[in-house]
Design a protein around this nucleic acid. Structure first.
Length: 260
DNA sequence: ATGGCACAATACTTGTGA
């Protein structure tokens, strides 16, 4: 089973890019972030024509997540538990029925949190505390579990070309990294890092200031695997080339292959 | 101390992102 996480930065602006990529790459499942659309505004038929089921959790203008899948989906849920007043669409879950194994997939768009300190940073930390609590309950089910998405966390300095410019940023502050590690340390495996050491691996390059041309990037799109999912881990790779194509997102797809 | 860029909204500018 191939699962991709891909922050597309707006479905209206990215639909042709997404369709071209789906046709060529043909992943089994895609966790999509930043659709920036309500559910009714998502061009679902155009994706369904390529053989994908489409489950969205959108809102007007910002955020919004989705799961696209050629494999059957069951038990789809929307929203991160823990705060009924939270109106931001950043979490969707489904069970993917693989040929050998069912996998619980969480697609997430973790808050950016800038500027820090401030209310947006407080929201980020509160959201991560809710995610930690929810992750703990999901782990207790002792099944293959994948939490895929845009974490808006640069886990270590080696995950940025210029770590020094991020040190006071919500993506890299010690408090942010600690909150990320608290989740990982519940018993998850960070898929990419478990297979690939060292720096120079990025999933985001800003549109501004020639960041792509300078390879001025950061690695913020991640997969966390439960022990049962880590047992199935085959490969995790970053599709860097996508950033050089026509009308790209500022993020590239990150691929996970499981023996499931 | 901030620019640079891209996207969405009901807009001719502003908020948001990372």
């Amino acid at each position: 089973m191939q699962i991709v996480t891909y922050n597309i930065n707006g479905i209206k602006a990215r639909i042709e890019t997404l369709l071209t990529w789906l046709k060529e790459a043909s992943p089994d499942v895609v966790a999509v972030q930043e659709i920036k659309s309500v559910d009714e505004g998502f061009p679902r038929e155009r994706v369904e024509e390529l053989g994908y089921r489409v489950e969205t959790h959108g809102q007007k203008g910002f955020n919004g997540v989705a799961i696209l899948s050629k494999l059957p989906l069951e038990d789809v849920t929307r929203g991160l538990p823990g705060d009924d007043t939270d109106e931001q669409a950043r979490w969707i879950e489904a069970t993917v029925i693989g040929d050998k194994q069912a996998v619980r997939l969480c697609g997430l768009y973790l808050p950016n949190g800038n500027p820090a300190p401030g209310p947006k940073y407080d929201y980020k930390l509160a959201w991560m505390a809710r995610m930690e609590a929810h992750a703990k309950s999901l782990l207790a089910q002792e099944m293959p579990l994948v939490m895929a998405g845009d974490y808006n966390i640069i886990p270590q300095d080696e995950d940025a070309t210029r770590p020094e410019v991020w040190h006071k940023d919500a993506l890299a502050l010690p408090t942010s990294r600690e909150a990320f590690r608290r989740i990982v340390n519940l018993g998850f495996t960070e898929a990419f890092r478990s297979l690939t050491r060292g720096g120079g691996h990025y999933s985001f390059w800003d549109y501004q200031a020639g960041a792509w041309q300078k390879n001025d990037g950061i690695r913020i799109d991640h997969f966390l695997l439960s022990p049962e999912a880590a047992d199935l881990l085959v490969e995790c790779r970053i599709e860097k080339d996508a950033r050089a194509k026509d009308k790209p997102s500022d993020h590239v797809p990150v691929w996970l292959t499981l023996d499931a």
